[in-house]
């Protein structure tokens, strides 16, 4: 059992939990993820690592309610436990193994969308601890849905916030901010974009035009997370890759996003979609490509 030390609703339908998981906390790196199972009947749910404390042996996870599974775990409180908590899974971000000196010379841009802000945070923090300040764009539908602003501000070089409805920070999509920054004369050697599939697709379109190599982190359907089931397969540069062992980060300019978006809806039946929309209301983030939440 893996004890929950803290549980907090960051904003509507987005939750943060600090969980005791010594082995994961000891070995995880930016870019990796974990899988939880709430109880004996629970689904295996892959979730983002938002932060880790090696000394305390804890992992901070952030998740959004997107279905029955996440809905259930959102009811857990401090003092409760996860039945299972396994990781770290997937490969660490590429820069973790890069030469520090060459890394310091790079201008890195992070683009985070919605709950995607959570997995971006440990990457920016890791770089910050090495004395590397990266620019970060955080996009949210509206001001109230923005998460981890203070935390991100503390570790980012420049933080640019944009809301779809203009209720806070800049107004418009993250792609607009990318373009604006480049137009203002900013130069970036690499971009890391994490957020809804549809956002990553359009960021990649934009950065391809701007000639900025871009890494994305995919979160396809998964069962075991160790390479065994192949449910998470994605096509990258014409090759089939397993997101759990080959990823989750890939060259965004090579990812077949349309296929990945179709595959995300395999288990989203009509009924399930209706449930989702009802549960999420205005925050419905889309990504399934079929429910209209993307528009």
């Amino acid at each position: 059992m893996y004890k929950i030390l803290k549980a907090e609703e960051l904003t509507t339908n987005i939750f943060l939990m600090v969980v005791e998981a010594k082995r994961v906390a000891k070995s995880c790196q930016p870019g990796q993820f974990i899988i939880v199972r709430m109880d004996e009947e629970g689904e295996r749910i892959p979730l983002t690592i938002c932060d880790y404390d090696r000394e305390q042996g804890t992992i901070t996870i952030v998740f959004q309610i997107v279905g029955a599974g996440t809905q259930k775990i959102s009811s857990l409180k401090a003092g409760d436990s996860f039945h299972d908590f396994v990781g770290p899974l997937g490969c660490p971000s590429e820069f973790v193994s890069e030469d520090e000196e060459s890394l310091k010379k790079k201008n890195i841009l992070f683009v985070a969308g919605g709950v995607g802000t959570a997995p971006v945070y440990p990457q920016v923090k890791w770089l910050h601890e090495k004395g590397i300040n990266a620019d970060v764009i955080v996009g949210a539908k509206t001001k109230d849905l923005l998460i981890l602003e203070k935390e991100m501000e503390a570790v980012a070089g420049n933080l640019y916030i944009t809301t779809d409805d203009g209720s806070y920070g800049r107004s418009g999509m993250v792609t607009q901010t990318i373009k604006d920054l480049v137009d203002e004369g900013k130069k970036y050697d690499v971009c890391v974009a994490i957020g809804p599939m549809i956002m990553m697709k359009f960021v990649c379109k934009m950065t391809e035009e701007l000639n900025i190599p871009t890494i994305v982190s995919l979160n396809p359907i998964m069962v075991d997370g160790t390479g065994m089931c192949g449910a998470c397969r994605v096509t990258v540069g014409g090759e089939v890759k397993f997101a759990c062992v080959d990823g989750p980060e890939f060259d965004g300019h090579k990812v077949d996003f349309d296929q990945a978006m179709k595959r995300q809806q395999i288990y989203k039946t009509e009924e399930g979609r209706a449930f989702l929309k009802a549960q999420e209301g205005d925050t419905h983030h889309g990504g399934c490509g079929n429910c209209g939440g993307d528009e």
């Binding site: 082995r23 994961v24 000891k26 070995s27 299972d84 908590f85 396994v86 990781g87 770290p88 899974l89």
Partner: peptide
Amino acid sequence: ETNVVVGKSV
């Protein structure tokens, strides 16, 4: 000990 992915967790 379950939930230990050798090569990742340790």
